[in-house]
Simulated scan of single mutants.
Amino acid sequence: MTAPLDATESAQHAEPEAITQGVRDIASRSLTQIAWQRLRRDKVALGGGVVVVLLILVAIFAPLLTHWFGYPPNEFHQDLINPSTQGVLGDDPNDPFSTDKMGGISWEHLLGLEPVNGRDLFSRIVYGAQISLLIAFLSTILCVIIGTVLGITAGYFGGVVDTVISRTMDIFLAFPLLLFAIALAGVIPDGAFGLTDNGLRVSVLIFIIGFFSWPYIGRIVRGQTLTLKEREFVEAARSLGAGTGHILFREILPNLVAPILVYATLLIPTNILFEAALSFLGVGINPPTPTWGGMLSNSLDYYTQAPHFVIIPGLAIFVTVLAFNLFGDGLRDAFDPRSSD
C-alpha cells in the first residue's frame, strides 16, 4: 500500500516543478525570440522574406550577374532587330518557338530583347532593381528617422509641442505629393549641390518621398508613445531620477522598434511603386538608365508586337511589392502581443 502513495506524492511534487519550469522557459524568451518563433511558422511570410533577400542580392551583385548571364544594360544589338518591323529577327517564321515570337529569349538573352534597339532585358531588369531598391530603402530610412523623432517628441511632451507637430502632420498628409513630385522633378537642373544628372535626380526623389511621407509613421509612433509614457517602467525610471533623454532613448524607444520595423517593411513597397510611377510618367530617372517604370512606359507602343516587353518589368514590380507586403504582414503578426504562441 505504501508504493502507490509514494508514487502519488512524487507526481504531486513533480507537477508544480513542471509548471514552474514551463513558466521559466516562457519568461526566459525575449520578444525577438518569440517573434522569430511565430515568424518561422508563417511559411508565406518566410517565402516573402526569402524573395526580398534574393532581390537585395540581385541588386547588389547586378554587375556580376550581367557579366555571367547577360550583356551591359545599354548595349545595342541591332544585328538581331528586323529593320522593317523593328522586332526581333526570327529563325523560322513557321516555328512557334522562333526567336521573334519568343521575344528573342535564348541562352544568351535569358529574358529576350527590347524591340527597336535590342537591349538585353535581363540586364536592364537586374540594374532596374538597383534603382528601385536604392530609392525605396533610403527614402524609407529618411522617413523613419523624421517620423520617429517628431512622433516620439509629440507623444512624450504633449501640450503645445504635440499640437504643433500634429497639425504639421495633417498639413503634410493633405499635401498632393504626386503632383508636387512631378512638378519638382520636371524642373530639376542638370547639376546642383555637387551632383549631376541621375545622381541629382535620385537624391531629389529620396528627399521628396522620405520628407513628405514621415507623417504616416509619425502618427503611429506618437500614438505608441502616448501609451508607453504612462507605463510602470517609465514611472519607475522617472522616480529614480532618470532624465528625459534616458527615458526617451533607453525606456520608450526600444519598445517602438517592433512597430517601426513592421511599418517600414510595409512602406518600402509603397515607395517602390511611387518611384515606378514617376519613371513611367517620364519625370523620374533619365534614360538610358534602366528603371522598371521607364521600361513599362517604353513598352506601351510594342505590347502587341513584343508582349514580353510589358510582362517582364510588370512582373518585377508585382513580385517585389508582393514579397515586401507578405513579409511585412508576417512581421506584424509576429510582433503582435495578442497573437497566440
Rank of each mutant, 00 (worst) to 15 (best):
I285P: 01
V164L: 12
S340G: 13
T244Q: 04
P313L: 06
E251M: 09
S132Q: 08
L184R: 06
P72Y: 10
Q305L: 15
L266K: 03
T227G: 15
V53Y: 14
I165A: 04
F137Q: 05
I131T: 14
A264Y: 10
D25N: 12
V23H: 03
L331N: 07
L184E: 08
F193W: 09
T99M: 11
I146C: 10
L65V: 05
P96R: 02
V283P: 02
P254T: 13
R332I: 03
Y302C: 01
T304F: 01
T244V: 12
L46I: 14
I125H: 09
F212H: 03
I182T: 10
F97H: 15
V257E: 05
I247D: 04
N198F: 05
V234I: 13
P176Q: 06
T8N: 09
P337K: 02
D79M: 01
E230R: 09
L273Y: 14
L331C: 05
G330Y: 04
E108A: 11
A27P: 00
L57Y: 14
I317F: 00
Q21M: 10
S203N: 07
M102R: 13
A7C: 05
T32R: 13
G241T: 07
V52Q: 02
T20E: 13
G194H: 10
I285F: 05
F172C: 12
Q37F: 00
F249I: 01
A14F: 15
I247A: 02
G293D: 06
A45W: 00
S139C: 02
P288V: 05
T196K: 15
D42R: 04
N117E: 15
D91F: 00
L111H: 03
L133Q: 07
F97N: 15
V187E: 00
Q224Y: 14
V51S: 08
V58L: 15
R29C: 05
P307H: 08
R29W: 06
P337L: 04
F122H: 04
S297H: 08
I60K: 00
N298L: 06
L228I: 11
R238N: 11
N117P: 04
I247R: 12
I145S: 09
T244S: 05
A27G: 08
L133H: 06
R332W: 07
L57C: 11
V44H: 00
L300Q: 14
A27M: 13
L261M: 13
K101H: 04
T244L: 08
E15M: 11
G48R: 04
K43C: 07
P16L: 14
L281Y: 04
R41E: 03
V262D: 05
L134H: 01
L80P: 07
M295P: 12
I19H: 01
D197W: 09
I285R: 02
L46N: 09
N286F: 15
D6V: 14
V44L: 13
T196M: 11
D197E: 12
V310A: 14
I208W: 06
L142P: 07
L296W: 03
V164Q: 04
G314W: 00
F157V: 12
V58K: 03
G223D: 06
M169A: 14
S123K: 02
L5M: 12
P269N: 01
I285L: 05
V53S: 13
L205F: 00
L184C: 03
D329V: 09
L278K: 01
I268F: 03
G48Y: 08
F180L: 13
